[in-house]
């Protein structure tokens, strides 16, 4: 493969981590959490650039 890197030593998710990625109750919580984080980021910018 030469130049091509297979990244075989990269961090890999466990089966539980993979499960959580599409587990609806957990993802519903993450949906609100990510949105909150983004709104805090936007709010911070509005404060800086009023």
């Amino acid at each position: 493969m030469g130049e091509i890197n297979t990244n075989i030593y990269a961090t890999q998710p466990t089966a539980f981590t993979l499960f959580l990625r599409t587990f609806l109750p957990w993802q519903l919580w993450r949906f609100f959490s990510i949105n909150l984080r983004m709104m805090l980021l936007i709010g911070r910018e509005k404060h800086l650039h009023k």
């Binding site: 130049e3 091509i4 890197n5 297979t6 990244n7 075989i8 990269a10 961090t11 890999q12 998710p13």
Partner: peptide, 12 residues
């Protein structure tokens, strides 16, 4: 690297 390795996407 982890995202790509997990999906067996190689890289240059």
């Amino acid at each position: 690297e982890s995202v790509l390795a997990e999906r067996e996407i190689w890289s240059v």
